Amino acid sequence: MATKRIFVVFVLPVIFSIVFGSTVMFDILQKPDRELNLWPISSSEGFSNHDNNENKIEIIGLSPQYSVSQSVEIQVKVNDPSFDCGDLYITIHSSGKNEIITQGGFFTQCFDSRNSLIPVGDEFSTIIETPGSYRITADVISKDLVNTSTSGTFTVK
């Protein structure tokens, strides 16, 4: 009798949780356009998103076309004086499938008005070996958790 109660109270809920969780994860993974939003952006949480066309940042050095053996090297110029320190994230996506090809993270990028190109003391450089069309995105998140981003497109032949 006691083993039946232990099974119903402890083991059965674990089994149901595993089955339910697996079903939910399977359903989520079947949606190819699903995006994982780790930082919900809302004014109630103190975050703000500057994803408008004010050109607060821009990608410098991006060519419209690269060869397969040529490296993609860029820097990001910050035009907003409120950004003096922050983290820079650069991501290259394939344009057709929107899958991530490569990412780079440059943390604690501090600069002044004379040197507004980032990454400071480092570089973003990658070689893409598959011909096609690509989209590159640069995101800067300030120490005050203010986010701004820009993107550009290029092709590899």
Rank of each mutant, 00 (worst) to 15 (best):
F26M: 09
I18V: 12
G21M: 02
I41A: 05
I41N: 04
E35W: 06
G61M: 03
L12E: 05
S43N: 06
S44H: 08
N55V: 05
W39M: 01
L36A: 02
R34C: 02
E45W: 07
S22M: 05
L12T: 05
S43C: 00
G61Y: 02
Q30Y: 03
K31H: 14
N49V: 15
I41P: 03
R34V: 02
I60C: 07
G61D: 04
L62S: 01
I59P: 11
R34P: 01
S22K: 05
I28P: 00
I59W: 13
N49A: 15
E35T: 07
D51T: 08
M25F: 11
I41Y: 05
V14D: 04
Q30M: 04
N49F: 15
Q30T: 01
I41S: 02
I15H: 05
K56F: 15
Q30R: 04
G21R: 01
Q30N: 06
I28Q: 08
I57M: 05
V9P: 07
V9Q: 13
V9H: 10
E54H: 13
F20S: 04
F26D: 11
L38Y: 06
N53E: 10
G46C: 12
L12H: 04
S17T: 14
D27M: 14
E35Q: 06
N55P: 03
D27L: 13
N53R: 07
I60K: 09
E54C: 12
I60H: 04
V8M: 10
T23A: 12
H50P: 00
E58N: 10
F20M: 04
F47R: 00
L36E: 01
N49W: 15
N37E: 03
P40D: 12
D27T: 14
S44Q: 06
I59L: 15
P40I: 09
I57R: 01
N52Y: 05
V9E: 13
I57K: 03
V8E: 09
L38Q: 06
N37V: 03
N37Y: 01
M25A: 13
F16P: 11
N52Q: 04
D27W: 14
S17M: 15
E54K: 14
D27V: 14
I28C: 04
D27Q: 13
L36C: 05
D51I: 07
L62N: 00
S17N: 14
V11T: 12
G61I: 02
G46K: 13
E58M: 09
G21E: 02
V14G: 08
F10E: 14
I41D: 07
V11W: 09
E58T: 10
P13R: 11
F10Q: 14
L62Q: 00
S43T: 06
R34S: 01
S63P: 06
D33G: 08
G61C: 02
G46M: 11
I28G: 01
F16S: 14
L62A: 00
F20V: 04
V24S: 08
V9M: 12
E45P: 01
E58H: 09
G21D: 02
S22A: 09
F26Q: 12
I28L: 10
